[in-house]
Design a protein around this nucleic acid. Structure first.
Length: 758
DNA sequence: TAGCCCGGCGTTTTT
DNA sequence: CGCCGGGCTA
């Protein structure tokens, strides 16, 4: 068995797999077979007689957890099924549900997502008479979340603020306190509570802690570099008895400090567990040596890191190159061109391409360019399916049916669809409920006392009847039927049907999708309760369903790219001020995190890596001239010369001529390549010839040459390329060809020796 | 109560 | 530039 489980592993991987007892830290660099090691280690534990229910493996994403679980099952079959593999949050939610009574928690608690958290905070500000302009909701939400990450209670926060003489902090502590009270009143927990309540309960109830310590004799924590203090304590408490804790991570890929992750957890592991064994996985199975070298050149600029360097036996093919564009539209157009070129002529599928950017706002130009080019793409975003308004509305109904005291859900749907219960009515009712110390729902029953208009009272009564009707059905109706009844009887669907706009039709489709997702859940999940469903929903995200994007280019932020790999990667917007973003260049710690993000992005690439930047970029309606990102120079691309051509005016005339005379799909090549900038490293040249200033960019329509814009050609030295500009005719015909390496050349057709491919 | 207009604001976001 | 939310008006 041991042989079977280790024969496909390298020496270091084997060492990690076979080390089962005592604390172990595995530094697993990008693409070094981390999941392989974790899953084999679990399988090995099972093979030597460890009971499956005594192994606990936690990660951060559902995607990682699902994948891990699947691979463990492949290796260990039924035994693998019984191993607990999940996210921190899912485990804690389960723990709190099971132990709720013991630890004084409402066992029917639901989980508030970020949007609901913000609504609660908004209510708190109103109650405390605080100005939303002074106390920004999202920043308060952030502070409260960070406090929970650090296991700080409202009074901890208040004490700290007083010690520091921090008036703002004192107020935030008050908000935090009220916020907790409101969560408790509505029987809800937020994400941070899941972890914090678990840790606090384990600390508070020694018998409980001992039980779980006994149960989980082997603990594995994935992505350890991203753990926050609460998660760190969680692992530490559970492992304290048996000390069989195995953490896996890569300090070079820690990019979530702004969410409370503490990179010191991984850096200090060997101090926490003095007899810990440490294994470094440095052989990379993903990328070319060139990509790894370039990525290392960047990340080695960081001070706070464990020294290590990835190496590989992979062949040294593929390219790393810098792609400069004139504007953000030009950047997107060039990327789109390269992708269509390579996918049509070099045997790549569209799903082999990914475009990464630092901010979500950058996705727009790519969407435009891809649509123009007819390239299918998928944006993996933060807007989850379950974040869509119509989905949240239906979910709010379900939540309210589950727990009518949920004020946030109540307020969300009280007037959706419109029932004539406006802001003022709700406000009056809520104030009334606060004075009576009951939920808004409960207040409806004594609504006569609340000084409301007759119409509002009647509307509230009928709303109350509607919800009560649903509640009566709750125990003998499936969730799917319940959802369908809600959609129908609330009038929600009817409103959308009457509207009959493209948007409303999309909403109806989404709602239908929700119903089938619910159906699916009820068929597959062992826990078919409404509470089970609502919990599961809150804990999933967009990226979990990424696999479906076959045949499409993937667009996403760098943060979402972690853990993925693509044959061709475009890192875009590599400009000063954009990446590293904002002021972070001035703060060493933030700069190092940005650099790790760059490293994460680079190490996603299997074959070809493009570092893209635009000389000019319009952000928030303002056009700015940019310098290339320091990460480009750190990657070893020497800045040979930067000389900007300012002749934009002349150029725009050319643009206009193209636009009016030939409204083709090429118009996004306006102000093409005005920057004369060249970069080189050892074996990757990227020299942009300067275009002659006065040439007309107008392309004659009567032209018999085989070279058209969009034609794919092959050059004896530069390889395959696509014609993206042409000027002149006959012997003077000049072409601008964008080659697969990302470099582009201006060529005189007469002498260039091009052959037409398609 | 509901719809419109204006002003402020705009990193990243595993759960 | 474009979105969202608050405040004002019909």
């Amino acid at each position: 068995m041991k042989e079977i489980l280790t024969k496909n592993l390298n020496a270091n991987q084997q060492e990690a797999v076979l080390c089962t007892e005592g604390p172990l830290i595995i530094f697993a660099g990008a693409g070094t077979g981390k999941t392989r090691v974790i899953t084999h280690r679990i399988a090995y534990l099972l093979s030597i007689g460890v009971a499956p229910w005594s192994i606990l493996a936690v990660t951060f994403t559902n995607k990682a957890a699902t994948e891990m679980k699947q691979r463990v099952i492949e290796l260990s079959h039924e035994m693998g099924e019984k191993v607990w593999i999940s996210t921190f949050h899912a485990f804690c939610a389960y723990f709190l549900r099971v132990e709720a009574v013991k630890i004084g928690l409402n066992p029917n608690f639901l989980i508030y997502d970020f949007g609901e958290q913000k609504n609660v905070i908004k209510d708190c500000l109103k109650d405390l008479n605080l100005d939303e302009k002074k106390f920004k909701i999202s920043s308060i939400a952030d502070k409260i979340s960070r406090a929970k990450d650090d296991l700080k209670t409202p009074s901890d926060m208040a004490a700290q603020a007083e010690e520091d003489g921090d008036f703002m902090g004192t107020t935030i502590a008050k908000i935090y306190q009220l916020y907790q009270k409101k969560l408790e009143n509505s029987g809800s927990l937020d994400f941070g509570d899941l972890i914090m309540r678990t840790v606090v309960s384990l600390e508070q109830y020694p018998a409980l802690l001992e039980h779980y310590q006994e149960k989980y004799k082997y603990i594995m924590i994935d992505e350890y570099q991203d753990t926050n203090h609460a998660q760190y304590m969680f692992a530490k408490l559970l492992a304290a008895k048996n000390k069989n804790i195995c953490v896996v991570g890569d300090d070079d890929q820690s990019v979530y400090s702004w969410r409370g992750a503490d990179i010191n957890n991984i850096l200090d592991f060997e101090n926490d567990y003095p007899n810990a064994k440490s294994v470094k996985l440095e052989q990379n199975y993903r990328s070319t040596p060139k990509i790894l070298e370039t990525a290392h050149k960047v990340v080695r600029h960081n001070g706070a890191r464990v020294k290590k360097q990835l190496w590989t036996q992979n062949p040294d093919d593929g390219t790393v190159s810098v792609l400069n564009a004139a504007t953000e539209n030009d950047e997107a157009a060039k990327v789109a061109d390269l992708i269509s070129l390579k996918s049509m002529n070099s045997g790549y599928n569209l799903s082999d391409f990914a475009v990464f950017y630092r901010t979500n706002a950058q996705s727009r130009t790519f969407e435009d360019a891809f649509r123009r080019e007819g390239l299918p793409y998928v944006i993996v975003g933060t807007l989850k399916f379950y974040d869509r308004a119509e989905i949240k509305d239906i979910m709010a109904y379900l939540k309210l049916i589950h727990n009518p005291n949920d004020n946030i859900s109540f307020k969300r749907i009280i007037n959706i669809p419109k029932r004539g219960i406006g802001k003022t009515s709700v406000e009056t009712l809520e104030k009334f409920s606060i004075t009576k110390n009951i939920s808004i729902w409960q207040a409806i029953d004594s609504v006569q006392e609340a000084n409301l208009t007759k119409g509002a009272v009647a509307a509230l009564k009928s709303f109350s009847l509607l919800i009560k009707g649903f509640i009566d059905l709750k125990n003998n109706t499936s969730i799917k039927d319940m959802a369908e009844k809600v959609i129908l009887h609330s009038g929600y669907l009817k409103d959308l049907e009457v509207e009959n706009s493209p948007e409303s039709r999309t909403k109806i489709e989404n709602i239908q999708e929700l119903v089938s997702a619910i159906d699916d859940f009820e068929k597959r999940s062992p826990d078919k309760s409404l509470a089970g469903y609502l919990t599961q929903i809150t804990l999933i995200s967009d990226i979990d369903s990424l696999d479906e994007s076959k045949g499409k280019v993937t667009l996403m932020t760098l943060h979402l790219a972690k853990g993925l790999e693509f044959k061709n990667v475009f890192l875009c917007g590599l400009e000063k001020g954009l990446f590293p973003i904002g002021e972070s260049a001035f703060n060493p710690q933030e700069l190092e995190e940005e650099r790790r993000l760059m490293y994460v992005g680079m190490t996603r690439a299997i074959k070809n890596l493009y570092l893209c930047w635009a000389t000019e970029r319009t952000v928030y309606g303002k056009t700015k001239w940019n310098m290339p990102s320091r990460f480009i120079t750190e990657a070893g691309f020497r800045e040979e010369a930067i000389e900007r051509q300012q002749n934009i005016k002349n150029f725009n005339q050319g643009f206009n001529r193209i636009k009016w005379n030939k409204p083709s799909n090429r118009q996004h090549y306006n102000n093409f390549s005005r920057a004369k900038i060249s970069y080189r490293n050892e074996d990757s040249y990227n020299y942009n010839d300067e275009l002659t200033k006065d040439e007309p960019l107008y392309t004659p329509t009567s032209d018999s040459s085989p070279y058209k814009i969009g034609t794919i050609v092959s050059h004896p030295i530069f390889g395959k390329g696509k014609i993206i500009e042409k000027n002149g005719i006959g012997n003077d015909l000049k072409l601008v060809v964008l080659f697969e390496t990302g470099q582009w050349k201006k060529l005189l057709a007469r002498v260039a020796n091009l052959s037409v491919i398609s």
